[in-house]
Amino acid sequence: MNKKKNPLLSGPYLVWTAAFIIIPLILIVYYGLTSSEGTFTWANIMEIATPENRKALWLALLLSVISTALCLIMAYPLAMILSNLKFNATGLIVMIFIIPMWMNFLLRTLAWQTLLEKNGIINMVLKFLHLPALNIINTPYAIVLGMVYNFLPFMLLPIYNSLVKMDRNVINAARDLGAGEFQTFTKIILPLSLPGVISGITMVFVPSLTTFVISDLLGGSKILLIGNVIEQKFKQGSNWNVGSGLSLVLMVFILISMAIMQKYDKDGEGAAF
């Protein structure tokens, strides 16, 4: 409002961000680059090169890329259908996708165990339909399913927002000028919705890459992702230095995806909220 700076207004949140956002990150860097005696070392970061950790990172990258791609493939048509609805359905859509969040995240994910089990509900239906049984519980497939299920709204909402904001006249103009349906999509709709797509990709990729809960619940605790390794370093082994070192490696991937997002989405057009 008034152009004068008001220290009473800006003081509290600046102190808060410094104390609980900036200093904590500095501490991770500090722990990640020092040994338990407090001397400088690269050893914690090099821990990523051990066979188990490399495997965990590789599997996490693979599964998160797959589930991000699946989310995109599923959410884009969905967003197009929803944005073409006659009435303004924004409130309703947000409701439909936010309401599941009121059921606890862990229980929701656990429910997939019941659904996917050998004698679970899905297999009962498949058996009834004389289809082959689905044995994916405690495999990477189940983890991908859990990721897609949990993070699909993060892909849908930004894409939907960028589609709704799109000027209909541009699409109509393209059609008037003789573009076919496919051409209108590839030349007009897709490029204009790109900020939403990019923002959706980061919002699904980062949590999938770093999760330890989904792999824990649906992977039968035998499949370790990099998130699981870090969690164990802090919660079971108490090896904070190695845990912080591995977190730093993880943050490199997060920073790369954020930089890509920044490049394509300068004005925050693809924001989900």
Partner: peptide
């Protein structure tokens, strides 16, 4: 301010625990 939203939850959790 946006860091906790964009960063991985596990990293935010660990960094707060360390602080």
């Amino acid at each position: 301010i946006n860091i906790p939203m964009l960063n991985a939850e596990i990293v935010t959790g660990i960094s707060l625990m360390l602080v």
